[in-house]
């Protein structure tokens, strides 16, 4: 069981400091990424999804740091405590890109406009492989070809502005996959793309997962994507994971009221135009002025007195956990 875990995050707390104020962006987050599986992290904007990714990659902004908790990468040479490595040290840099690669939200801005796509792929190969110049070039062409980019021999020398959005994201994935990383972190990789391109990109990522056994951590707010791609799901709210488990359990029997509200807020195909979409009432609280107990309590329809205290993490099933005082009632309700 433990062997197929690629990355463990335990009680991670990452704080961001601005103007002498502290935003507890991650307030005790724990999860695992399994080898060859996709973990989807879902949640509203600002819930800490991207900070989680940045913490793992050690790419946090300057005025933020990991305060507590552990990030353990289970690499081929045994476990490595990523959170204890210096940000720009040689060890962290050897992991970043080679072992854990990342693709970003907006392929329009994530690629450097003044270098050719080929250069930006080869850069990765240069740092993490012993390949020579011409080998790197042909490897870059191979990568583009396997990402389904037409005429890769010509395209490899072209600049990002000559690529379409979908092609740029494919090129990003080519960069990410160039060193066969064990973990690929994708931070909303299709938010900036057309719906038709989205499907292609996800299909590509799914193929890579199957062919290379890459573990994928996919950050998204699209429940449809979760249903289709995820093996595991973690639902985040205000820097906490409120519910996590295998995709079948979490989507079919959601226990946390927030997960339920999220699922209720999606229009369902076939119910017509007039269907009622239940938006979640209220707004996410100000991160500098958080409620004391359960962060979701103010917006929750099932609030009780106990919600003024932060609930502990409860196990609904061995692989399904939730942070809610009333989980038993909901679990019973869901099982019906």
């Amino acid at each position: 069981m433990a062997n197929d875990v690629a990355l463990t995050v335990k009680a991670l707390k990452t704080y961001i400091y601005t103007n002498n104020r502290c935003n507890r962006a991650l307030d005790g987050v724990s999860f695992e990424i399994r080898q060859g599986k996709t973990l989807c992290i879902v949640g509203e904007s600002g819930c800490g999804k991207s900070v989680t990714a940045a913490s793992i990659m050690q790419l946090l902004p300057t005025l933020s740091r990991i305060e507590e908790g552990e990030i353990t990468y289970h690499g081929p040479d045994g476990p490595v405590r990523i959170d204890q490595l210096p940000r720009d040290g040689a060890k962290m840099r050897a992991i970043r890109g080679k072992e854990i690669a990342m693709i970003f939200q907006d392929p329009m801005t994530a690629l450097n406009p003044v270098y050719s796509i080929g250069f930006q792929i080869k850069e990765m190969l240069k740092y993490h492989t012993g390949l020579g110049r011409s080998d790197r070039h042909s490897k870059a062409i191979d990568l583009l070809r396997s990402m389904g980019i037409p005429l890769p021999k010509k395209r490899v020398n072209e600049y990002p502005h000559l690529y379409s959005g979908g092609m740029r994201q494919r090129a990003m994935i080519a960069i990410g996959m160039s060193c066969n990383p064990r973990i690929l972190i994708a931070d909303e990789p299709t938010t900036a793309l057309d719906v038709t391109i989205q499907a292609q990109i996800f299909e590509l990522m799914d193929t890579l997962k199957r062919d290379h056994g890459t573990a994928i951590m996919l950050i998204t707010h699209d429940m449809g994507v979760v249903a289709e791609l995820a093996d595991d799901v973690a639902v985040m709210y205000m820097g906490n994971i409120v519910e996590a488990g295998p995709v079948g359990k979490v989507l079919r029997n959601p226990v946390h009221p927030y997960t339920r509200a999220l699922l209720d807020s999606i229009p369902v195909l076939g119910r017509g135009k007039d269907q009622e979409i239940k938006a979640i009432p209220g707004q996410t609280p100000d991160p500098y002025n958080r409620p004391k107990g359960c962060q979701f309590a103010d917006r929750c329809a099932y609030r009780i007195g106990a919600c003024d205290q932060m609930p502990d993490e409860m196990q609904v099933a061995p692989d399904h956990r939730v942070t809610c005082w009333r989980y038993e009632e909901f679990a019973a309700d869901a099982a019906e």
Binding site: M57, L59, D88, M92, R93, A94, I95, R96, G97, K98, A101, M102, F104, D106, T109, A110, L111, N112, P113, V114, Y115, Q120, E123, M124, Y127, H128, M172, I175
Partner: peptide, 29 residues
Amino acid sequence: SRDFIRTARSKGMPEWRVNILHGFRVALT
């Protein structure tokens, strides 16, 4: 402050290379 700097960092290259090769080169124009 651009996104491609973060991409460059995510490749695991040394900080000076990120600054010079990706930052300075773009700042030069």
